[in-house]
């Protein structure tokens, strides 16, 4: 079955998120007083053909390790949906 896997990638805590800071400054400058903080990350979708949702997750995790995520600076979480 085909699963759609959504991968959310963000910088690890402690790694300076310059884009987040820039967006934060802009939003604050526009008067969004409720704003507390901003993080900018990446959202990647992959479609995989596997036997189970768990296998789809494992396959996606391998993709993250192999290429999609740089574990020196980034962290990720995965959501799996059947199609």
């Amino acid at each position: 079955m085909t699963y759609r896997v959504s991968i959310f990638i963000e910088l690890q805590e402690g790694v300076l998120d310059i884009q987040g800071k820039a967006v934060e400054r802009s939003l604050a400058g526009m008067g969004h007083d409720a704003l507390r903080s901003v993080k900018v990350g990446k959202y990647i979708q992959v479609w995989v053909e596997t036997g189970s949702a768990e296998d789809a997750r494992k396959e996606a995790e391998r993709m993250c390790d192999d290429l999609l995520v740089n574990s020196v600076i980034e962290q990720f979480r995965i959501e799996v949906e059947g199609e």
């Binding site: 790694v15 300076l16 310059i18 884009q19 820039a22 740089n70 020196v72 600076i73």
Partner: peptide, 17 residues
């Protein structure tokens, strides 16, 4: 080289973006 882990660390966008 950093992406290959042949050198430590990583290179991020310039602080000016």
């Amino acid at each position: 080289l950093t992406e290959s882990r042949l050198l430590p660390g990583a290179l991020l966008p310039n602080r000016t973006l």
